[in-house]
């Protein structure tokens, strides 16, 4: 690791300004992903701007929803009384990720900014278009068991590793952003990108003079909802502390035995949290039966394509969607 410069900032404005001044600078919050990437030589910023003193830790709720500060720790969000009672899907998803220690360090904003765990991205001796555009995709014909089955490109088949983001995508969250040009909001589902021809870009933060991450996430807003039935299902290679092979976030409203409202998103299948809008439409108005869920599961995986080792994700995805819907529908 190079011996970078390190500064602390206490306002969002100062942070954004500091970022604009230095081409090779990055914000650091929890550091759980950034420090790791720096150790591996994947990224070597010359300056770190510590944003931990920014006043962005609050979780505040009103009738319209809840605003979670970008610097709220993952563990604080998962333990927060409002989140636990009104947005339990989010708490469940957060607790399905990483470890208790990492959740005590990682922030909500940082979780969104975490980069793929693709082995080829992480190993600087291997080809990777995301890390080094033009060098090729190592995973395409290599070890791709963990990789995407939706929205891939020839350039990149990596997946976004977050669990939290899958729940946020399902819950219609909005990302609050600030930058040199002022504040703006992006729908959570529009925040992360598909790889296309520019897999080096993980998300749609503006590519200002400070590089891709010139802007700063200040918070996440989740609109109020009346979902009473929810489930976050994560299938992984060991019982805990592993990234998803496939995960599914489901939130349902059921009246009698009829589904009146549904939100679904998947993790471990794409370069971004994969919202299942068509499935939501399909199940709405239908009765909550295994047959409905099986049909929904088939629909969920339509268009999925594997690359060899990850072909199983299509079958597993179906199983996971059906099971997550079932589990959610049976919540009391």
């Amino acid at each position: 690791m190079i011996n970078f410069d390190y500064i602390r900032t206490s306002t969002a404005k100062a942070a954004v300004e500091a970022k604009a001044k230095s081409a090779s600078s990055q914000f650091i919050a929890g550091g759980t992903n950034l420090v790791d990437l720096m150790k591996k030589g994947v990224t070597s910023p010359e300056k770190l701007i510590d944003i931990n003193s920014l006043p962005l830790k609050q979780i505040t709720a009103d009738a319209k929803g809840v605003l979670i500060g970008a610097l709220a720790l993952n563990s604080e969000v998962a333990e927060n009384a409002i989140i636990k009672t009104k947005y339990p899907l989010l708490a469940q998803a957060i607790n399905a990720g990483a470890s208790a220690q990492l959740r005590n360090m990682a922030t909500v904003g940082g979780n969104m900014m975490q980069r793929t765990r693709c082995s080829y991205f992480y190993d600087i001796t291997m080809p990777c278009n995301k890390r080094e555009p033009g060098s090729g995709c190592g995973a395409l014909q290599g070890q791709n068991r963990m990789h995407a089955v939706f929205g891939t490109s020839e350039k990149c088949i990596a997946v976004h590793p977050s669990d939290m983001c899958v729940a946020l995508a399902a819950l219609d969250a909005t990302v609050h952003i600030t930058g040199a040009k002022g504040d703006r909001k992006i729908l959570f589902t529009d925040f992360h990108r598909l790889p296309g021809d520019t897999p080096e870009l993980d998300n749609n933060l503006s590519t200002g003079p400070g590089g891709q991450k010139g802007e700063l996430i200040t918070g996440i807003h989740i609109p109020a909802n009346s979902f009473t039935k929810f489930h976050y299902l994560k299938i992984r290679d060991r019982s805990s502390y592993a990234f998803a092979l496939v995960s599914v976030a489901v939130a349902l409203e059921i009246s009698g035995n009829t589904i009146t409202n549904a939100k679904l998103a998947m993790g471990g299948v794409a370069h971004k949290p994969w919202r299942l809008s068509a499935v939501e439409k399909f199940v709405t108005g239908k009765t909550a039966t295994k047959e409905t869920f099986a049909a929904a599961a088939n629909m969920a995986m339509e268009g999925a394509a594997g690359f060899g080792q990850n072909n199983f994700k299509i079958k597993m995805g179906k199983a996971a969607v059906a099971e997550a819907l079932l589990q959610a529908s049976q919540k009391i």
Binding site: I28, G31, T32, V35, L48, S99, Q101, L102, N104, M105
Partner: peptide
Amino acid sequence: RINSCLSLAVM
């Protein structure tokens, strides 16, 4: 509780 390996001392 945190992982001290991923925390920069200066933080």
